[in-house]
Design a protein around this nucleic acid. Structure first.
Lengths: 231, 231
DNA sequence: GCTGATAAGTGTATAAATAACACTTTGGTC
DNA sequence: GACCAAAGTGTTATTTATACACTTATCAGC
C-alpha cells in the first residue's frame, strides 16, 4: 500500500447497494445477486459496489446496476444511508442505498447477459442475506408501500403500455389489498393521467383488454396546478 | 501525518448536518450557526460535524447537536445523503443529513448557553449558506411538508401541552394554507389522538383556551389497527 | 360457424367525508 | 360593568368513497 490515500482521521469506505423491484405475473419481486467473494461468499445479497472518487452515489449506483445486471435508464431514488460501524465484519463501510423500479422490458435485458448470477425473489420469500441487507430490503418495501399511494411510481413497474387489470393487480400486490374493479377504474381514469391507446391485447383466449399508457405530460401539468395523486 | 489511516483506495470524509426546525410565534424557523473556520468562515451554515469511527451517523448528529446547541432528546430523522464530489471545496466529503423538530422548551435551552453563535431564521428568510446547505434546507422543507400531513410529527414542534389554535397555526405555517377553525377541530378531535387537559391558559387578556396533549399511546393503538393519520 | 370458457367492461344507489359558513361565550383589562 | 379579543360551537350542501352483478368481446375447440 502506498502513502497516497492517507488521512488525518479514519474514514469509512463508501458503497452503494440497490434494491431493485420488478413486478412479475405473480407478485412483486426483488433482484438479488450471489456474492463471489468473502465475506458472505456464495450468499445472496443486493447488487452494490464501491463509490469512486469522481462520482456521486447515484451515478455509482447506476454504474453498478449496469455492470452487474445490464440495466440502464431505470427509475432510481435514494433510500437510506446505513452507517452502523459494525455492519460489515471487515471494516468501517457506509452504504448509501437506493431503490429502483424496473419494468418487464428492462427485466428481460438481464436474463440475456450473464454478468453475475442474479435471480428474482418474491418479496415474501427473500432468503437470509449478507450484511444488513435484509434490513435494507425491509426499508425499501416500506418506502415503496408508502410512496406508491401518493406518487405515480407504480407505472415504472409496468411496460410502456398496460391494461387496467395489470395496473390494478400491481396495486393489489404492492399494497396487499383487494380493490373493487369498477371503483378502481373510475378513480384512475377520472384523474386524467392515462392515455387510452387504440390497441388491444392479442391471442389471449378471452376478450382482449385495451392498452393504456401513463401520460407524463398531463401529470406534470396537473401537479403544477396543485393536483395530488392518491390511490 | 502518520501512516495509521491509509487505505488502498481514496475514501470520503463523513459528516452529518442537521436541519433543525422550530415553531415560533410568527412561523416556522430553522436554526443556523456561524462558521468559525475556513472555508466559508463567518458564513451561516447548518450545525454539523465529522462522524467518528465508533458511532453511527444518527449518534453523531445527536452528539453534534448537543455540543453545538445544547439540545438533546429531540425528534431526529435521516433526511438525505449528499455525495456530490465537489460539494466541499477542500476535498471529498459526504454528508448524511438529518432533520430535527424541537419545541419551545428545547428551543429555550440554547439561548442560555453560548456554545456557538446560533440564530433562528424564518424559513422564508434563510440567507446564502455555506457549501450546499441551501439545498439541504430545501430538501428538509419538502420532507417536512410532505410528512406533516400523513404522520403526527407536528406535535414535536409544540410544547407538551398546547391549544388547538396553536396546533392549527402550526399546520397553516407548515403547509402554507388557511384552515377553517371548526372543520379543523372537528377532524383533529374526531381522530381521538388528543387528550383534553383540565387546564387553561392564564393571563391572556381574552377567553383562555383549553390545553390538549398528544396521546402517543392512543396513536400506537390506532395505527396497529390500520388507522392512517391524515390532515 | 357454433359453443364454451374467461376476463373485460360498465352504472347506480347509499354512506361517509369534506367544505362552507356566523354567532355566543369567556377571561381579562381599563 | 363595558369592552376587547380570541375561544368555542352545528348544520347544510357538496363531493367523494363504497358496495354490488350482469353483459360483451375474444379466442379455442369442436
Amino acid at each position: 500500500m502506498d502513502r497516497k490515500n492517507c488521512y488525518e482521521y479514519p474514514r469509512p469506505a463508501l458503497t452503494t447497494d440497490c434494491v431493485i423491484f420488478g413486478f412479475g405475473g405473480n407478485g412483486l419481486k426483488v433482484l438479488l445477486v450471489e456474492r463471489e467473494k468473502e465475506p458472505f461468499k456464495n450468499k445472496w445479497a443486493l447488487p452494490g459496489g464501491f463509490v469512486h472518487e469522481n462520482e456521486n452515489a447515484e451515478e455509482s449506483a447506476e454504474r453498478v446496476l449496469l455492470e452487474k445486471t445490464g440495466m440502464k435508464n431505470v427509475f432510481i431514488e435514494q433510500l437510506y444511508t446505513f452507517t452502523q460501524p459494525d455492519r460489515d465484519p471487515r471494516e468501517w463501510i457506509v452504504s448509501v442505498t437506493y431503490f429502483a423500479l424496473v419494468n418487464n422490458r428492462q427485466l428481460q435485458l438481464i436474463t440475456g447477459r450473464d454478468i453475475v448470477k442474479a435471480e428474482w425473489f418474491g418479496v415474501g420469500h427473500v432468503p437470509r442475506l449478507a450484511f444488513d441487507h435484509n434490513n435494507i430490503v425491509k426499508k425499501a418495501l416500506e418506502r415503496l408501500r408508502g410512496k406508491v399511494r401518493y406518487q405515480p411510481i407504480g407505472f415504472e413497474l409496468l411496460d410502456e403500455k398496460f391494461t387496467l387489470t395489470q395496473l390494478q393487480q400491481l396495486y393489489e400486490a404492492v399494497l396487499g389489498t383487494v380493490i373493487d374493479k369498477r371503483n378502481f377504474r373510475k378513480k384512475i381514469l377520472g384523474m386524467g393521467l392515462l392515455k387510452a391507446l387504440n390497441e388491444k391485447e392479442k391471442n389471449v383466449g378471452r376478450r382482449a383488454a385495451r392498452y393504456f399508457s401513463f401520460d407524463r405530460k398531463a401529470y406534470k401539468k396537473l401537479t403544477a396546478s396543485g393536483f395530488n395523486f392518491e390511490i
